[in-house]
Design a protein around this nucleic acid. Structure first.
Length: 652
DNA sequence: AGCACGCCGACT
DNA sequence: GTCGGCGTGCTC
């Protein structure tokens, strides 16, 4: 078809066979509004029903041989899908054998008409650009700036100390480093995207940015915003002005004018794992976007993820070392931590140091789990106690009272051990509030502050206080903690996960970085290479060793993996197709999964990724479009599904 | 998904 | 003769 304009539309649909652009004729009445990036409504299947979609591009003609349907409507004339973001979404989806529409659902917040109206009416003044700032401290003078200007990919070890901002507020030095990098980028009238794991990090970053950048230039996207606020920030980002956009993992897809820098803080934090399909990690999305846009890419963290270590070792990312090896004073103590209540849980040396430090300022105690005695076992035979109704774990509620099931809430007041018939329960692990109670008794004069996932505390002052926090929920202290006790190392290492050591190192390193310079950090009950890595603060060396052992085992991220879940016959066929797609592809399993399904794992080198994704995608489409054989056993014949997940952090 | 098209059994 | 059953296939 020629003449007139043609709208190329991505239709909202979870079906893999619809994950392509469909052409529609643009009727006269929509000529003005039908521009690339707007939300549209289109008829699908002979006008029967109307679907939502994205107008990806406008063309003058169509390759489609049939008769084009007409665009039904333009939802809003404001374009939301930038061409650059579309290219990124398409590439990220292809890499993970997923739908581009699913990526866009992560990338573009839902529309709020009121926010849109306010934005249209608002004063467009985006605020001043900063002048050239002082050199970014801690690294070779001008090195990071040069890298940003040249669009390099860089990995940095963060300065592990708290710093005081002009405002008087204390933040991790990493936040100041990223703020300086963003300010440098903005001074050149280019945008930055800074991705952080959670809003507590975001608060620090925002405070650090306030020192250097006009706040009107800073946009944030986080889960604490209302939908309207999020949409407003998104609309602001679509404008022509350079900005600094800070936020969680979805920020990697934010629209940005003249993108100059993508930075990711602590890419190894599990909060960075994208939960929504197709589960593309922001690190991978950032790598794609960096290549497409030519912007610089910066990975910053106290510990180094094995993924970034791999990128450094293959030469794709430049390592930028700090000028001076600043190392928190970590003291490993092998002394067994006894599970008995009271002071015995803390080695005497750490105990004395904490008492001493408490005269001077805040002391941090990191524990493994939240709540009060989170796990209960039989007092006699130590069998883990389970709910008699549903099999869920039993806990003692924060407020006290009878143990109850975490899943169904059933009270376990009449619990009886199914193994030995005993009726008494005991606490198998000690949670934060229990530790807080004990420490409160042991340090009767100290104020005890508890911070956990449920009730996180963002910051504490410089006055003496015993701060008991679960890993990942440690508040930042003005001036830094005078001592840090990492108590539950042993217990944290018991978690079942391939990445447990990596996670523990990150939790310890991030807590250690909250200490004042020179303050002692006691790592209790952990010895060996892992403790050694922390005391020497050579965390990239540990990542390097870990990567080497994963290479030997052919585990990710030395190779890539994809899991395939479906009915047994479909899994077998998909694994065959993946193995045939490229040399060096192998598979594990399949093993039984839920509901009579099976799950297999495909392993492949990075170079084979495109071929494997293409092959599995073809299988998904084949399975979805294949005529569904009606089984004699009548009930509902559900459409067959082949679930494919690439680079799942929980696999293997 | 959802909906229209299509080729075999009980009906005014 | 025809209404409609659900299996099958497609969506610009």
């Amino acid at each position: 078809m020629a003449g007139g304009s043609v709208a190329r539309v991505l239709v909202d649909s979870p079906l893999p066979q619809l994950d392509q652009l469909f052409d529609y004729a643009v009727p006269e009445r929509l000529r003005e509004a039908a521009v690339a990036g707007v939300r549209v409504r289109v008829p699908l299947r002979s006008g029967g029903r109307i679907a939502n979609g994205w107008l990806v591009e406008v063309a003058s003609s169509s390759e489609f041989e049939g008769r084009l349907s007409e665009l039904d409507d333009v939802v809003s004339e404001v374009p939301l899908l930038m061409p650059e973001v579309w290219a990124l979404a398409r590439a990220a989806a292809d890499r993970a054998a997923g739908n581009a529409g699913d990526i866009l659902r992560v990338a573009i917040p839902s529309r709020y008409v009121r926010a849109e109206r306010a934005w249209r009416a608002a004063d467009p003044d985006p605020g001043e650009l900063p002048g050239p700032g002082a050199a970014i401290p801690g690294y070779e003078r001008g090195r990071i700036e040069t890298g940003i200007d040249a669009g390099q990919r860089m990995a940095l070890a963060a300065d592990p100390r708290p710093v005081r901002l002009d405002s008087g507020e204390w933040v991790g030095a990493w936040a100041a480093t990223l703020a300086a990098a963003a300010a440098h980028t903005l001074a050149a009238d280019r945008s930055s995207l800074i991705i952080v794991p959670d809003y507590r990090d975001q608060e620090q970053l925002q405070a650090a940015l306030a020192d250097r950048v006009d706040p009107r230039r800073v946009l944030r996207t986080d889960a604490r915003q209302t939908g309207g606020e999020r949409f407003r920030a998104f609309l602001d980002a679509t404008g022509a002005d350079a900005r600094v956009v800070i936020g969680n993992r979805s920020t990697v897809y934010a629209p940005a004018s003249r993108l100059g820098l993508i930075a990711i803080w602590d890419d190894g934090d599990s909060l960075q794992n994208e939960q929504l399909a197709p589960g593309v990690h922001p690190r991978d999305a950032a790598l794609i976007r960096q290549e497409q846009s030519g912007a610089a890419l910066l990975f910053l963290g106290h510990s180094r993820s094995v993924e970034v270590e791999r990128l450094v070792e293959i030469g794709w990312v430049h390592e930028v070392p700090p000028v001076r090896h600043v190392r928190p004073k970590v003291i490993p103590t092998e002394q067994q931590a006894s599970p008995e209540p009271g002071s015995a849980r803390i080695p005497s040396s750490a105990w004395r140091a904490a008492q001493q430090a408490l005269l001077d300022g805040p002391v941090l105690v990191q524990v493994a789990r939240p709540g009060h005695a989170p796990m209960l076992t039989c007092d006699r035979c130590r069998e883990p106690a389970r709910c008699s109704a549903c099999g869920g774990a039993l806990v003692v509620p924060r407020s006290g009272g009878d143990p109850r099931c975490v899943l169904c809430g059933t009270s376990a007041s009449t619990w009886r051990c199914p193994v030995c018939e005993a009726t008494k329960l005991r606490a198998a692990t000690v949670g934060a509030s229990r530790t807080a109670e004990e420490l409160g008794r042991a340090f009767p004069k100290a104020r005890v502050i508890l911070s956990d996932g449920e009730r996180p505390v963002l910051k504490v002052g410089a006055e003496p206080a015993l701060v008991v926090a679960t890993r990942g929920a440690e508040p930042i202290a003005d001036g830094g903690y005078r001592a840090v006790l990492l108590l539950d190392g042993e217990r944290m290492l018991l978690r079942e996960s391939l990445r447990v050591a990596e996670d523990c190192l990150r939790w310890w390193a991030n807590a250690a970085a909250l200490a004042a310079p020179g303050a002692p950090i006691y790592l209790v009950g952990v010895a060996g290479a892992l403790a050694q890595s922390l005391t020497s603060w050579r965390l990239s060396e540990w990542a390097s060793g870990e990567l080497a052992s994963r290479r030997a085992l052919r585990f990710p991220p030395a190779v890539r993996v994809a899991s395939v879940t479906a009915a047994p016959a479909l899994v077998a066929k998909a694994l065959d197709a993946a193995r045939d797609a490229a040399p060096g592809v192998d598979s594990l399993g399949p093993v039984p999964a839920d509901e009579g399904l099976e799950r297999g794992i495909v392993r492949f080198d990075y170079a084979a990724g495109v071929a494997v994704a293409k092959a599995l995608r073809a299988e998904m489409i084949r399975v979805a479009t294949e005529r569904r054989r009606p089984v004699a056993g009548q009930p509902p014949k559900r459409p067959a599904v082949l679930r494919v997940r690439f680079d799942d952090p929980e696999v293997p």
